[in-house]
Nucleic acid binder design. Structure first.
Lengths: 219, 219
DNA sequence: CGCAGGTTTGAGCACCCTCAACGAATGTGG
DNA sequence: CCACATTCGTTGAGGGTGCTCAAACCTGCG
């Protein structure tokens, strides 16, 4: 099966652009190319490809992942508006990056990662490192319910802590991020729904009803 | 049960020091405190503690981990001689770090992670990031045999690619690193032994007999 | 309306965990 | 030096969580 994803979050670059993108990270200030547009499922870079850029999500969402030879996929991170990705140790990409939905991305060309801008880049890299290490705990030591609960709580936090959480990614993406199957993810969602912890207004959004229960489950 | 570990790799700081420690990483050159000694099981730093240092393993081995409220532990990384650890996003440690066996550590005090040395620190941080992301794939998508095989192969690589691999850590440490139980780790070891993929001269070392099979299993 | 993709739901099973006992290795005190 | 305690590692039996395989169900769209 192809990784090609086509679902219908309409591409509206102009009005979809969030208000808060400048000043979030200084390396993406004035001296930068205009944002680039990627439709849903479009590859941003591929494993083995030449690296050296840094990417900033303007709007939309991105998945970064690795593949095993037999096709098993592990998504190491989702990146939403305002977040940066694309760090690499050498000039070759070790991962794949794709737009999940219609996505705008600002590209910063780096002469080298041993750059004079390292002072600004390092904190971003470290945030990613801590994020990834926390995800290790989820994959290594938490069961299906805990993983999904942690995922919903995390997505809510990154969207401002509101009860209405938008999930741009498919169940398959969530499964490959949490180290589960789509069936298990689906079952946990419905179980949480039946327990009135969440509501599911539609396939791509979740409403958190019982915060406390959700956080207890996530821990 | 306590995390206290006491096994018998004799503390011999002077002759145990590896020949190749200078010049490995420039921030650890002349302007640094003398290496500090940690016996087996000794805490190097704790979650919630004040951070701001960077640590370089001179000899021995270190485990970095997180705990869940109920005591489940996930080791995010082992660090061997020549490797650096202790990066944090803010002034607080998000993880625990302990010496696995008798260990010598060189401490670099950083005024801030937004340091003028960021240009030298960034590549180290990025290596850690890629390492951790690759570990995600193992925890999220590989079965017990693949995890153990990948672990042995990785430890061999980091010790120069020799067939004789020293494992300073206990089975419990390996289990908490691979997201398994000690029983499963033990069973996989014996299964690999019976298939003549490895030999187990003693509890703390492995000899790789069939490289190709090991790598096929790890994939 | 009918197709296609994604999602949900179900039945059965496999892998790994839990619980338990045993064995091996080390350190201690008599 | 040997008995003992203690910790760690191995091995076994049984059960549970999550996976596999399969079918039905939406939902959006041509």
């Amino acid at each position: 099966m192809a990784n090609l994803e086509t679902h219908r979050i309409p591409p509206r670059p102009d009005e979809a652009r969030p208000a808060r993108d400048e000043a979030v990270l200084s390396p993406f200030g004035a001296s930068t190319q205009p944002p680039q547009f990627f439709p849903a499922g479009k590859e941003i870079y591929a494993q083995g490809g030449k690296s050296g850029n840094l990417y900033m999500v303007e709007f939309g969402a991105v998945r970064v992942y690795r593949l095993l030879a037999d096709g098993r996929r592990q998504i190491s991170a989702f990146h939403l508006a305002g977040e940066a990705f694309g760090f690499e140790t050498d000039s070759t990409h070790h991962f794949f990056a794709e737009a999940i939905c219609a996505t705008g991305i600002r590209v910063l060309r780096l002469s080298s990662f041993r750059d004079e801008r390292a002072g600004e880049l390092l904190p971003m890299a470290l945030r990613g490192l801590v994020r990834t290490q926390e995800h290790l705990l989820v994959l290594g030591r938490q069961n299906a319910v805990e993983r999904v609960a942690a995922f919903i709580a995390d997505m809510s936090e990154r969207q401002g802590g509101l009860p209405q959480v938008e999930l741009p990614m498919s169940r398959a993406d969530i499964a490959d991020y949490l180290g589960l199957t789509i069936e298990t993810v689906s079952r946990v969602f419905t179980r949480l729904k039946h327990k009135d912890v969440i509501r599911l207004p539609n396939l791509r959004s979740v409403e958190i009803v019982k915060w406390q229960v959700l956080h207890d489950l996530a821990a």
